[in-house]
């Protein structure tokens, strides 16, 4: 089988125009090795002699020589196909190997002291979808959760004693960008004592500059009373100051854009509250109780097909 691709040479010498070039060693067909059932055909461990008389020796075909010829040196004489991973029959070999390697790592470093809960570094692990992309296997959420639990336990090892191999093992499961390292900028008062605060509500945006003063309010260059004709809107624009009794302590200069009057007024609430927090951080519980700190995430609900607006049904007609 090995020499099947070699040209068969006759007894007569080659004509001078034929130059026989030795071919580069090719890979034989693995099916020839009987690799499907490796131990049945791939290996002959012992043979029995069935011939009883010595006369058959003359009839039988000449003995096969298993010695390697010179042009066959680069070719493997035996090959069999085996799974690339011992988890082949689980159907999810990469995932299973990951799980087992993490389990083994944890077993090895189980006795290392753990960091107290507050001092554990916060890490964002890959989401299920990202992990599925990584291994290319249909991993279930509950199975991936096992990996996450192992990673969290490994992450609880005290940072001063965390072994290097654990760090390396955890690295592929971390998200590329750690959202926990993203901290909001701290605003401070500028040299004039102004503090900027930005608030949003519906589709309005308000930028508010708050400075210590005697209660003047200018929104888009106009006084509050001409900006918001409704009393309720005027009240909610400076609700953060009113709820904490600071109306006559600060001056407000604000720019609002987008949306309607309600949205603009309540965007101002948030902006003023944020700026006020920079001046007086201890007011935070009071402002939270007054409902000035939370951003209201509600937006206009989309219109749906078959409806007149978001939810309004067309009038019922008999036919």
């Amino acid at each position: 089988m090995r020499a099947a691709w070699l040209p068969k040479l006759g007894s007569q010498p080659l004509p001078p125009w034929i130059s026989f070039q030795r071919q580069a060693p090719r890979r034989p067909d693995i099916s020839l090795f009987g690799a499907t059932q490796g131990f049945r055909r791939g290996a002959v461990v012992g043979t029995r002699r069935f011939a009883t008389s010595s006369t058959r020796n003359g009839i039988a075909a000449p003995e096969i020589s298993f010695e390697l010829k010179d042009d066959q040196k680069g070719i493997p004489r035996y090959a069999r196909v085996v799974p690339a991973s011992p988890s082949y029959f689980t159907g999810k070999p990469d995932f299973t190997d990951n799980l087992l390697s993490l389990q083994e790592l944890l077993r090895k470093h189980q006795t290392l002291p753990a960091a107290p809960p507050g001092q554990v570094p916060r890490i964002a692990w890959k989401t299920l979808a990202q992990y599925r992309l990584l291994v290319g296997e249909p991993v279930k959420a509950s199975k991936y959760h096992k990996i996450i639990l192992l990673l969290q336990r490994l992450n609880h090892i005290h940072p001063s004693l965390l072994p290097e191999e654990v760090k390396l093992a955890m690295a592929p499961y971390k998200r590329d960008i750690n959202p926990h390292e993203n901290v909001a900028n701290q605003h401070t008062a500028d040299r004039f004592g102004r503090v900027i605060g930005v608030g949003r509500r519906k589709s309005s945006t308000a930028r508010v500059w708050l400075v210590e003063g005697d209660g003047e309010v200018l929104v888009n260059g106009r006084p509050l009373i001409s900006t918001f004709p409704r009393v309720h809107d005027r009240e909610s624009a400076i609700w953060a100051l009113k709820a904490t009794g600071r109306i006559d302590k600060y001056n407000v200069w604000a720019l609002v854009e987008g949306g309607g009057t309600t949205g603009q007024a309540e965007a101002l609430t948030l902006g003023v509250a944020k700026a006020l927090l920079v001046h007086e951080p201890s007011l935070k519980p009071a402002l939270r109780r007054a409902g000035c700190i939370t951003r209201d995430p509600r937006r206009v609900e989309r219109k749906k097909p078959g409806k007149l607006k978001a939810r309004k049904m067309p009038a019922w007609v008999k036919r």
């Binding site: 067909d29 693995i30 499907t36 493997p76 090959a79 196909v81 085996v82 799974p83 690339a84 991973s85």
Partner: peptide, 27 residues
């Protein structure tokens, strides 16, 4: 989709069989 490999008699992996492994029946 689970990967296979070709090894020699001492279980060392043999290179160069990737094409043959593609349309091979599973183990």
């Amino acid at each position: 989709k689970c990967k296979m490999k070709v090894v020699d008699d001492l279980d060392n992996e043999l290179e160069g069989y990737e094409e043959q492994l593609i349309d091979r029946p599973t183990l």
